[in-house]
Design a protein around this nucleic acid. Structure first.
Lengths: 106, 106
DNA sequence: ACAAAGGTACGATGCAATCCGTACCTAAGG
DNA sequence: CCTTAGGTACGGATTGCATCGTACCTTTGT
């Protein structure tokens, strides 16, 4: 079941949808940055500074939301995205670490 | 670097390619069955019994091979595929467990 | 009231992935 | 030698995905 805003339940997060969502480099970077940030960090779509149009951004964040990777909540003016770290870790343990590690060798 | 048969080195296995390869349900099932089998198990392409043509099978196994997930060796008459479990586990620890667990609740 | 910022919805486009049929190759076995 | 089994290579059809422009909505701030 999904709520009215398109978020699947934690126990409905499907491996196939998650892998498909993470196959795109832009979406993977969103998850990677959120995973490396302190827990519960909220980011606005535009704050990532990707060189794509607003319409494309909406599309990518929808895919991430419907896969269960992020949660989007209304914050008045804009819409904040935060990683569903607990849900993902409970269902696909270790996956976030792999994504967070990529490109994070500073 | 890849060898003459299209196998990437263990340290060149890219997360993006692996996730893209595993995004397809058929390819994910190949990896899942190999991961659940005893270590070093060799399977022929046709032995999986997928309802697709031979040409399509070749395509999917090529994607898996070029992503570094399987190794294909000539076994005289046919061609055996085996999981590169050690290489994958070294580079993407935990990933194989996630794939193996899916659909494997017996 | 108005404008600006952040997102969404819709339709269109271009490219990549999937899938197939066919032809071909190689090795094993009669 | 001939047949069969397992794969590959090539070309084509179809579908899906990423991307965009445009129009529109809502909230904040002036």
């Amino acid at each position: 079941m999904v709520d009215s805003e398109g978020h699947p339940d934690g126990d409905e997060i499907a491996l196939g949808s998650v892998l498909a969502a993470l196959a795109d480099p832009l979406r993977r970077q969103v998850v990677a940055e959120l995973a490396r940030a302190p827990g519960g960090t909220e980011r606005t779509c535009a704050s990532f500074g990707f060189p794509v149009s607003k319409a494309t951004l909406t599309h990518h964040f929808r895919v991430l939301r419907e896969a269960g990777l992020i949660r989007q909540v209304n914050r008045g003016n804009s819409r904040a995205a935060c990683l569903r770290a607990d849900d993902i870790e409970a269902r696909l343990p270790g996956l976030l670490d792999l994504v967070a590690a990529e490109g994070g060798k500073k």
